[in-house]
């Protein structure tokens, strides 16, 4: 995973609440065995007509948002299915961060593990960012993970919450598997102490 530190990007506004992962990447695109190539299918049903031509009024098809790196979406972003294909698809479509007033748990976890930053802001900031994205699509904001803040064009900085562990992993490009593997002694000890409690899937009689 590439480390994330500070980046600048323009925003695409998608002012819809409860955007579910079935919209972010419909199930028919899940028949893959790798993570690549999902960007094209991101928001497929909102983005394309049934003949495959782009719907001109959908935000991702509008030229002013073509290079947006930050998606601003309504509350409970990423609800529904646990498919990690959702952050893979958003990243494939060029996004580095999603801003919302809150995220669904599994989506947030999945995003953090892939380097897609889920940024939680209050309702007022959300509305401001939406207006900014709509009225001045070329204006970039700065995302500073180290400082846990976004910086608006007028210089105002807004803090966002992120747990220390995820922040450390993102800043250093460390994946969490490595951390767990180093706990081998702890896990062995736990297994010894709790050996008998659970029957295994191979002990059926």
């Amino acid at each position: 995973m590439e480390p994330i530190k500070t980046f600048q990007g323009t925003m695409a506004p998608l002012a819809i609440n409860d955007i579910d992962t079935d919209q972010i990447i419909p199930a028919r695109f899940l028949k893959v065995t790798d993570k690549n190539g999902l960007g094209e299918a991101c928001f497929s049903d909102w983005r394309y007509e049934s003949d495959g031509s782009p719907k001109p009024d959908f935000v991702l098809n509008q030229p002013q948002y073509a290079s947006a790196a930050i998606l601003v979406g309504g509350h409970n972003f990423g609800c529904g299915s646990s498919r990690e294909h959702a952050p893979w698809a958003l990243m494939g479509a060029g996004f580095k961060a999603v801003i919302s007033t809150y995220f669904a748990d599994i989506f947030r976890n999945n995003s953090l593990k892939n380097g897609l930053l889920p940024i939680v802001v209050d309702e007022e900031t959300y509305q401001q960012l939406l207006s900014l994205a709509e009225e001045e699509p070329d204006t970039a904001i700065i995302v500073n993970l180290e400082q846990e803040q976004i910086v608006l064009p007028d210089g105002r900085a807004v803090k966002f919450p992120i747990d220390g562990f995820s922040k450390y992993c993102l800043l250093n490009g460390v994946d969490q598997m490595g951390y767990l593997l180093e706990l081998d002694d702890h896990i062995n000890e736990y297994e010894e102490q709790n050996a008998g409690r659970v029957r295994t899937t191979q002990a059926g009689d």
């Binding site: 976890n109 999945n110 593990k113 892939n114 598997m177």
Partner: peptide, 11 residues
């Protein structure tokens, strides 16, 4: 998610 599936498989 799938990253976590890999964590559980391995550890």
């Amino acid at each position: 998610g799938t990253s976590e599936v890999s964590h559980v498989l391995a550890t």
